[in-house]
Design a protein around this nucleic acid. Structure first.
Lengths: 250, 250
DNA sequence: GCAACATCGGTGTTGACACTCTTCATGGTT
DNA sequence: AACCATGAAGAGTGTCAACACCGATGTTGC
C-alpha cells in the first residue's frame, strides 16, 4: 500500500519535525506540503496518517494535521510508559546480552565518562554537550538492542523520538541553571549508568531493571520540572512537587 | 482528517476482524470492502492504515493488506511487552486507586471465585467458561483503569485485542486437556488474582507489580505452549521448553 | 453588541488512470 | 520428457485532479 511517493513524503515531513523546523502545535497543510514535495495530496495524507501512528502528528477531522503537542498529563504518562518499557528491557538485557552487546554498552559508557570528566574540568561546557547527549542515547539504545526484543525496541525508540519532539529538544535543557549544579547532576547520571552496566554485565536481571527504573524516574522528574517551568512561563524559580502535580491537571 | 466514511469503514473492518470472520493472514481487498461498505476505496484505505496502527493489519506495498499474522517470535515479544506494561500498571494501581476502582476489581474477583467454584463442582464446564473469561478480562481492565495512566491503558488494551486476534480466540484454549488439569489451573489462577488484589488493596506497589508479573508470565508460557502445538500441528503431546524456544526461531 | 449569513480556506471523497506484481502460457534448452 | 527462461495478461494497488462538504472567519443588518 505504501509506495515510493508516500515514503518520500513520510521521510520529508518526519525529518522536518524531528529537526525542529516544524514545532509542536504547528499546522501541517496537505496542499502546501504536496506542493513542496511535488506530489499530490494523497501520498501526503498517507504520510501524515503514518506519522500519526508514530505519535508525532495529531489529526482531527476537517481541521487537519498538526505536530503533536502534549500537556503535562500526557507527558507524564508517556514518560511513565517509557520507564516501564525501558527498565523491563534492561532486565531482559541482563539475561539475553551477547558479548558484542556488552562491548557496545561499555563503549558508550566509557565515552560518557571521558566526556563528563572533560566537561567538569572545563570552563565552557558547550563544545562537548552534544557528544555527551549522543553517547547517552547510544548507551540506552545498546541496552535495548541487548534485550533481543525487537518489538519492545521499536516501541521504546518511538517514545524516545516523541519525547524529543514534544519536549522541544534543547529549548529546555540548555542553561537550566548554574554550571556547578549541572556538573553535579552529570556525575550522578554517570554513576547511575555505571550501576546499570554492572548489573547487566553481571547478569542480574532484577537489579538491572531496578537501577534503570531509578535512573529514568530521576530523569523524568528533572524533565517534568523543566517542562512545567517552560509551560508556566516561570523561568526564575522551581515548582514544588505538589505544584507540578496540580499543573498536570489542566 | 478522518471523517464519517472513514470511521464507518474502520468500525466495519475492525469488527469483522475481532469477531474472527476475517482470520489471520486473510487478504483484505480494498475494492471488495469498498463495495460492501458502499463507499469509495479512499476511506477504506485510510481505515486499513489506521488498523495497521492498531497492529491488527499488515500492509505491504503493492501487495495489499491482510489480517495480522504472527510467528512465535513475534508472539513472544508481544506477550513480553504486555507483561512489562501490565505489571507496571498494577504497581501504579496499588498507589493510585480510588475506592471505586478497588470495588470494581473486587467485584470481578468475587465473580471469578463464584464461577470457578461452580466449574470445579460441575461435570460440564462449558456453560460457565464464557462468563469466567469475561470476568477475568474485567479484572485486568479494572486494574489498568486504577493505574490512572490513560496512555498505558490504551496501549495495554491494544495489545489485548491484538493477542485475541492472532491467537485465534477459542481455537486454542478450548479442550486443551483433561478437565481435572484445567480445574487445577483455574484454581491456581484464582489464587494468583487474590494475591494481586491483596497487594493493590494494601497499597504495596512493588508486590502488586511482581505478583502481576508472575501471573502473566505463567499465562504467557501456557499460551506459548498451546500456540506452538497448534502451529506444529502436533496436538497429542506437549513441547518441551527447549523445543518451544527453537520453534520460535523459524 | 450580537446574531444570522455569506465567504473562503482546506479537508474528505470520488472515479479514472498509471504502475507493479503475480500468474500462467509459450517456447526453447538440456 | 522435464525444466527453466521469457513474455503477455490480469488483478489490485498507488497516484492524481476535480468536486463536495465542513468549519472558521469576517461581514452585514438589526
Amino acid at each position: 500500500m505504501k509506495s515510493v511517493n508516500t515514503d518520500v513524503a513520510y521521510d520529508y515531513i518526519r525529518k522536518r519535525i524531528l529537526s525542529g523546523e516544524f514545532s509542536p502545535g504547528q499546522a501541517l497543510l496537505t496542499e502546501t506540503l504536496a506542493a513542496e514535495i511535488e506530489v499530490s495530496r494523497t501520498p501526503v495524507r498517507d504520510a501524515l496518517r503514518k506519522l500519526e501512528t508514530d505519535g508525532l502528528v495529531t489529526i482531527r477531522a476537517h481541521l487537519g494535521a498538526s505536530v503533536k503537542k502534549m500537556n503535562l498529563k500526557e507527558f507524564r504518562e508517556m514518560s511513565d510508559l517509557r520507564l516501564a518499557l525501558e527498565s523491563h528491557a534492561a532486565g531482559l538485557a541482563a539475561v539475553n546480552h551477547t558479548d558484542a552487546d556488552l562491548s557496545a554498552i561499555k563503549f558508550a559508557l566509557d565515552a560518557m565518562r571521558f566526556l563528563t570528566d572533560k566537561i567538569v574540568a572545563a570552563d565552557n561546557e558547550q563544545p562537548f554537550l552534544g557528544d555527551l547527549v549522543r553517547e547517552d542515547i547510544r548507551f540506552h539504545i545498546a541496552i535495548m538492542a541487548a534485550s533481543k526484543n525487537e518489538l519492545m525496541q521499536r516501541e521504546i525508540m518511538r517514545l524516545h523520538l516523541l519525547h524529543r519532539v514534544v519536549s522541544g529538544l534543547s529549548n529546555i535543557d540548555g542553561g537550566a541553571g548554574p554550571k556547578v549544579e549541572s556538573d553535579v547532576r552529570r556525575l550522578a547520571v554517570l554513576a547511575k549508568h555505571e550501576d546499570i552496566y554492572r548489573a547487566i554485565a553481571g547478569g542480574n536481571s532484577r537489579e538491572a531493571k531496578n537501577e534503570m527504573g531509578y535512573h529514568l524516574q530521576e530523569l523524568i522528574d528533572h524533565n517534568l520540572h523543566a517542562l512545567a517551568r517552560a509551560e508556566a512561563g516561570v523561568l526564575s524559580r522551581d515548582l514544588t512537587a505538589e505544584e507540578l502535580l496540580y499543573s498536570g491537571h489542566l
